[in-house]
């Protein structure tokens, strides 16, 4: 069974652990550098507040090792705040890990009143439910990045090599298509 590490510093990591189990893999939490050294087939950066996770990554000594592992090919899936952590550019802010060739716009749909749910095509999985919570979107992608989903003309999911990002939260819906897609990327 594939083992997926879920960054558990802050945010909706439990929901991802459940989704990983539902998609047929095993999840464990990463809270410190010891957790990061465990053997894993893939890593999930969950939703939450990117400012909190970015700060804790640095102060708990996870930042550089995590960045190195991603650059060396560890499959990684970032949702919402996780997308922001991976973006090489963030409009108006300094980037965090910056491993993926996308430009993210934070809180792009405004405050909580702008949060919404819809259904849209994702990759080759057909239409899936998408829930956006104070979500970002992707304003631009480098040529090496594949766009996997768009909502109202804005990019909300993308892939570059073994890095996958969604602006929405598949872990909040019953549909496990996106997690299964990620597990496919985690092939040994």
């Amino acid at each position: 069974m594939k083992k997926i590490g879920v960054l558990a510093l802050q945010g909706a990591f439990l929901e991802h652990e459940r989704a990983v189990s539902a998609a047929g893999a095993e999840a464990f939490e990463i809270r410190n550098s010891a957790g990061l050294r465990r053997e894993m087939d893939g890593l999930i950066l969950p939703g939450g507040e990117s400012t909190v996770m970015g700060k804790l990554l640095r102060e708990l000594g996870l930042f550089e090792p995590l960045r190195t592992q991603i650059l060396e090919g560890l499959p990684v899936f970032g949702t919402c705040a996780g997308l922001i952590l991976l973006a090489q550019e963030i409009t108006g802010e300094r980037p965090y890990l910056g491993t993926m060739g996308i430009t993210a716009v934070r809180n792009a749909y405004g405050r909580q009143l702008g949060s919404f749910e819809c259904a849209a095509e994702f990759a080759e999985c057909g239409e899936i439910p998408m829930r956006f919570i104070r979500a970002p979107y992707i304003a631009q992608v480098e040529r090496r990045v594949t766009v996997l989903a768009e909502v109202e003309g804005r990019i909300v999911a993308a892939r570059e090599g073994r890095q996958l990002v969604t602006a929405f939260h598949p872990e909040l819906c019953e549909n496990t298509a996106v997690h299964r897609y990620f597990l496919e990327m985690c092939g040994r």
């Binding site: 945010g11 990591f13 939703g47 939450g48 507040e49 909190v52 909580q112 949060s115 749910e117 939260h169």
Partner: peptide, 18 residues
């Protein structure tokens, strides 16, 4: 119904936080 879910979801994103 939908707002209620979205609003519960925002609290989920705050978990593990201060």
């Amino acid at each position: 119904e939908n707002r209620w879910e979205l609003n519960k979801n925002l609290a989920q994103m705050l978990k593990g936080g201060v």
